[in-house]
Design a protein around this nucleic acid. Structure first.
Length: 201
DNA sequence: CTCACGATTGGA
DNA sequence: CCAATCGTGAGC
């Protein structure tokens, strides 16, 4: 029986939490009890004083959740058609979050079409795609990852931890994707040689 | 109140 | 390379 990751573990600066979340599992549970689990293989950190952070200028209705306690869920709409999901980190009132950019799903949800099934590793390869695959939208904005349903996080398995320790799994740190500001800050991490990572580099 | 644009994606 | 599509927020 695995316990969800606690708020205390998430209550650190996002650039510290983001690499640690690689190898952890995001679990999505629906009202009928069905669950889908995804290994987190790519993350990005956003923090105060970071020009790319939604809360960089001021506190607004949209970024409100970024100021909430660690373990809160921040979901926003991007380009009018995709959602992105973040884990709020750091101390209460410090606007800080980790964007989950890619997952390796253990089971493909039945609502995926045939085209998506042809490339199972790519189904959740990207922040918009993973939200679509797990039916994550703004109705989940502001919920917590700390209790269970509908969404929670589980720590790395001992096996994954071992693979990191022995270097059989490599964490790569690079610059973030798709930004016009703060593009030079190296706050993106991904699992090397993982087919579910959104992009190389 | 208006309007340019975005932490994206898939198709030409 | 480019369009889709709409909530957000900076600026008038």
């Amino acid at each position: 029986m695995v316990s969800p990751i606690p708020a205390s573990w998430l209550g650190r600066p996002s650039p510290d939490v983001a690499p640690d979340l690689i190898g952890c599992t995001l679990v999505r549970q629906f009202p009928d009890g069905s669950q889908y689990r995804g290994l987190i293989v790519e993350t990005e950190a956003y923090a105060p004083d970071d020009p790319a952070c939604h809360a960089y200028r001021r506190r607004t209705a949209r970024n409100e959740v970024m100021f909430a306690s660690p373990g809160s869920c921040y979901v926003y709409l991007i380009y009018g058609m995709y959602h992105c999901i973040n884990v709020v980190t750091d101390l209460d009132t410090v606007p800080s979050a980790v964007l989950i950019r890619a997952l390796e799903l253990d089971t493909l949800p039945p609502w995926l079409d045939e085209k998506q099934r042809r490339q199972p590793h790519r189904v959740a390869a990207g922040p918009g795609k993973l939200c679509r695959a797990l039916k994550i939208d703004r109705t989940l904005n502001g919920i917590t990852f700390i209790s269970k349903a509908p969404l929670w996080l589980e720590p790395r398995s001992p096996q994954f931890e071992q693979l990191i320790t022995t270097g059989q799994h490599q964490l790569v740190q690079t610059t973030r994707i798709g930004l016009t500001q703060g593009a030079d800050i190296p706050w993106r991490w991904y699992l090397a040689d993982c087919p579910a990572v959104s992009k190389k580099g």
